[in-house]
């Protein structure tokens, strides 16, 4: 893979729910300035937002590096949270570790990871229980 022409770095505060979404919002703005197509912006924004929210809810925050190349946008989300015990299960639509109570509030629909997968062209999860998770997603620019 070629050297990225632009790298954006964001710290995600894991203690404040109201700032979740700031990083994906900032990236969206940059992509619009670059003249990236609406479809690509949508895919990046949704995937990144889902992942950012997950980092806040499950992993006490972390950081995100966004690498922009002429052919792709890669988003690397790193956290030192609890890790995902069963990635395959977590990838299933509707699977959630959230309690019934949390679900009734509208969270934990079990669509986070499946949505990230759906909206990106490449997705790789590296995780270790008790150590943390890296979600590495790429969206191609056609």
């Amino acid at each position: 893979m070629s050297e990225p022409l632009m790298v954006l770095h964001y710290d995600v505060d894991g203690t404040d729910f109201t700032v979740a979404g700031e990083a994906s919002g900032a990236v969206k703005k940059v992509l619009k300035q670059l003249g990236v197509s609406a479809e690509v912006i949508r895919k990046v924004a949704i995937a990144m937002y889902e992942c950012e929210i997950n980092m806040v809810i499950h992993a006490h925050g972390g950081f995100i590096d966004v690498e922009i190349r002429p052919e792709s946008i890669r988003m690397i989300h790193k956290d030192v949270g609890p890790g995902i015990p069963d990635v395959e299960k977590a990838m299933q639509a509707g699977f959630s570790t959230a309690s019934q109570q949390v679900r009734e509030l509208g969270f934990g629909a079990g669509m986070g990871l499946p949505n990230m997968k759906k909206y990106t062209d490449e997705m790789k999860i590296t995780t270790e229980v008790g150590k943390g998770t890296i979600v590495d997603m790429t969206v191609y620019i056609k």
Partner: peptide, 23 residues
């Protein structure tokens, strides 16, 4: 039609370089 503000450059690689410079 979608009428976005002019991108930083018509050429995407150039736009990217300008965006990096902008940062």
């Amino acid at each position: 039609e979608y009428k976005p503000f002019s991108p930083l450059d018509e050429d995407f690689s150039e736009a990217l370089k300008k965006a990096a410079r902008m940062n």
